[in-house]
Write a protein that binds this DNA or RNA. Structure first.
Lengths: 244, 244
DNA sequence: GAGTGGTCTAGACCACCAA
DNA sequence: TGGTGGTCTAGACCACTCA
């Protein structure tokens, strides 16, 4: 039996199931790290065959939103697990040394969105935002100067203490403290030179070349939730990119 | 009926089919741009069901090795098509202007692989290589200084004339002239400062910050076939990276 | 052994394209 | 109208995990 409804714009069933599952994720029915119902249970719930649910889950797994584990079940992806802790960090040591990243908190203040940030985060100009600055060090040496802006509405109560507690993994902290899970990010890279404030934080002379990484992170439903500018020293590290 | 053979290390049938299809691609049975047989034909040929062939093709399509077109057929991906012409170029104009890239040939000489290149390209130290230098300009302004090294054995007869004819798309030229199709690439990015030779080619002062993109490209079977170092001016352009 | 995801099949029907 | 890929189903069996 074909369950395809009369639809002006054709949409495969598995896509509709995918939307339903995503909605349950947004609604918090299944939280990060938890197991979702089995394929057969979902098939019964949505009144479709197991194969159709399977395809929907396949797509979500390909986007790293769900994690399949044979013999165990399907789980909501999380930034908490060790392996995925720094999933968006593409900077790796040239020598392949084990990373000993440390987080040095600099500041956390309340600000208002200017026109640039409002456009990126999809909030009104002047909307309340929270601005964090921090320094990531590698084996004691400064590596990245981070400047982070998030909408205050979604991160009520975010402060310096929470940033310090996060031990460097902001995403893990967003998840456990605010229930905001990032699923995707876009980065724009440039080569720039260190300006005064950054140069002193990184212990460099002004004019030193830095890799500028501007990142926008998205939560479920492709909603932008964080803007970030990282200025990175790439003497002993490089940014890895795989093209397919 | 399950066609799974007795195998010490379990390998799904569709994976085996994928290997068979890949071998036909390597062997040149179906050339870039051509249509491969329909799913049913391949299913008959390999004595499996259409669904199994489908899954194998799905995987190859996800890797951009094959291109599916509903109603028409499945085609071998190529770098010739306009849309995929500069598939590996992630540098885009900040303003979103239409790109008018031009290729300025600088040099093409015969060289020998040093230990670094030999390791990367998987050839012996001292093996014959061909070294190309060129300048890519955007609307007349220098943008990228490229330094390219390929193994001479796979590119017999590559010379300056062929590079000039390529109009900037080396991959398209590799494909039509040498039957070498790149399917994947890895890039390492760093921020550096312009050295003398590069600075003069790009019309900059020494010490100007540049984005250094070191790329290794792979052909079928993950065989490395090109090393490339691009030094890019990122005043009006940035490198886009999507993280999932 | 029970439960989960993973594979494979066979067949029906739909959407898209070209002649 | 015929051929291609795309969707959906139902059912069988395999591989993995854990109690």
């Amino acid at each position: 039996m074909n369950k395809q409804l009369i639809s002006p714009s054709y949409r495969p069933l598995y896509d509709q199931i995918k939307v339903l599952i995503t909605q349950s994720l947004i609604g918090g029915e299944w939280r990060p790290g938890e197991m979702i119902p089995s394929e057969f249970e979902l098939a019964a719930r949505y009144k479709v065959s197991q194969g159709t649910v399977r395809k929907a889950i396949d797509n979500l797994a390909a986007e790293n939103i769900l994690i399949r584990r044979q013999g165990k079940g399907t789980f909501v992806a999380t930034h908490k697990a060790d392996v995925t802790k720094l999933r968006f960090l593409r900077l790796t040591s040239v020598t392949g040394d084990k990373e000993l990243l440390e987080n040095k908190f600099i500041s956390c203040i309340k600000t208002k969105a200017d026109s640039y940030i409002s456009k990126i985060l999809g909030v009104k100009v002047g909307a309340a935002t929270i601005e964090v600055k921090r320094l990531l060090t590698f084996s004691g040496r400064p590596l990245i100067y981070d400047h982070i802006i998030v909408p205050a509405a979604s991160f009520k109560g975010l402060n310096g203490a929470k940033v310090e507690e996060s031990k460097g993994s902001m995403y893990s902290m967003y998840e456990s403290q605010f229930g905001v899970r990032m699923i995707r990010a876009e980065e724009c890279l440039k080569a720039v030179v260190a300006e005064k404030e950054v140069a002193s934080a990184l212990g460099l002379k002004e004019g030193y070349p830095l890799l500028s990484i501007e990142r926008v992170s998205f939560t479920y439903g492709d909603k932008p939730m964080e803007w970030r500018l990282g200025l990175c020293l790439t003497d002993d590290h490089h940014y890895l990119s795989e093209l397919e």
